[in-house]
Design a protein around this nucleic acid. Sequence first.
DNA 1: GCTCCTTAGTTGCATATGCAACTATTTAAT
DNA 2: ATTAAATAGTTGCATATGCAACTAAGGAGC
Lengths: 154, 154
Amino acid sequence: MKTKKIDIDFENSIGPWLGRTGKMVDYFFQESFNAIGLDLTKEQMIVLKKLTFQDGLNQNELAFLTLRNKSSLTRLLTKMEKKNYIFRKQSKEDKRIKNVYLTKYGKDIYNKTKPVIQNLITTMEQNISKEEKQQIIKIFKKIQTNFSSSIEHI
Amino acid sequence: MKTKKIDIDFENSIGPWLGRTGKMVDYFFQESFNAIGLDLTKEQMIVLKKLTFQDGLNQNELAFLTLRNKSSLTRLLTKMEKKNYIFRKQSKEDKRIKNVYLTKYGKDIYNKTKPVIQNLITTMEQNISKEEKQQIIKIFKKIQTNFSSSIEHI
DNA sequence: GCTCCTTAGTTGCATATGCAACTATTTAAT
DNA sequence: ATTAAATAGTTGCATATGCAACTAAGGAGC
């Protein structure tokens, strides 16, 4: 007897849920920035955030911390430098390295994102209990571990 | 007394976990396709999947189902049409509408992705119990609801 | 039947991204 | 010291994406 399940059950796995939810977060993020006239993308915000916590990181470190290809980071920084959010400075010890710093303006911009981010968190985590939050983060950690251990040995 | 917490607690919210995990999934996905020489992106695969379940969808419907801007879908389809995975056909009832169909080759390609997707699910959901899976999906649903209701009334 | 509004799809412009090839610089090896 | 290998960053080429302006076609109102 032939079953009607002619396809694998991808739709009920975690993947699509993750993808769709992520898209909605991204969309809401950009929407919020645009709404208050912030000339900023989520990706640029993440760079500003990392630099706020540790100014002067080099591009390699920034790329690693933001899970980004170094070429992608190069271009991201070029745009941010043009907008005067950050500036690059060649290291004196090792001329290959460029350290990246926030400008005063970049700091201002980052401060302006704070209420937006706060609002995003509030909106997103509405009706979600502390336990659920812990649960989901625990599961995220597991998934990341699963992929890390799987990708390493390739 | 001044607290040391000078920044909002974005890092411990769900957002970054979601973003990073999503990136890893995407990376693993692409890696897997490339590994077996499949000339396909995750996005193209999703289109193939939707068409597998319902051949002949029009572009508007496809864009909606895949959470994509219609212009983005246009270009995605153009590339897929060039690779002969799908073809467009103008509707006779309404000449504005283009229905999209899988080619024989497109079906073959989609079938080849199945083991890859199966492997992705297996890898990703390793050590994750049925209960956890239900939990995480339930929370994803909540987040999506939160954003939907929030975006609507803008 | 003509005008206006709406809808489906396309295109220009801007962003982000990965891979691979390239340059410049540093370090290791002989 | 000179050569070879490794490292940091950039660039070409390809993909995907959203917004806004556009074209073509359908539908409503008169």
